[in-house]
Amino acid sequence: MADLREMYQEVILEHAKSPRNYRALEAPAVRAEGYNPLCGDRCTVYLTMRGDVIEDIGFQGSGCAISRASASMMTQSLKGKTAGEAEGLFKSFHQMVTGRNSHGDRPQLGKLEAFAGVSEFPARVKCATLAWHTLEAALHGEHVPVTTE
């Protein structure tokens, strides 16, 4: 039986209650919208880039504990990273929550390891990845809202 506490870890619940970087960034920040049509969750990600480096990042939106915590911890882990590094983290994160890599294959994820338990709950993978999909759209300058579908 899948274990609830594996997914709803203390660090996740704490971020869900008090998300970090929960704010809009002023122009000329890049902004992208994400939407999960299945549950109605919304996420807006704001990025200020200096060259190829993410100088500042914020998010806003409404969603479940998993999607809020994921967005919050994503913003924490991306400040100062290059766009390429961010994409690499997303790839590794995505493989983790879909159960396609193992603990040893993802040393760079650090605190984001807390989301490993999501792989036991396939219906919740999209909650965990909504902010990341939105981040990708922001990095690529997409102006049409991305969806998880």
């Binding site: 609830l4 997914m7 709803y8 299945l38 549950c39 479940c64 998993i66 909650c127």
Partner: peptide, 22 residues
């Protein structure tokens, strides 16, 4: 203060099927 999706997942583990969403 609790999103329906989280409610649905926890109920599911109790064997209870409800719909969560719009």
């Amino acid at each position: 203060g609790i999103h329906p999706h989280d409610v649905g997942t926890i109920l599911d583990l109790e064997g209870i099927a409800v719909r969560t969403g719009h």
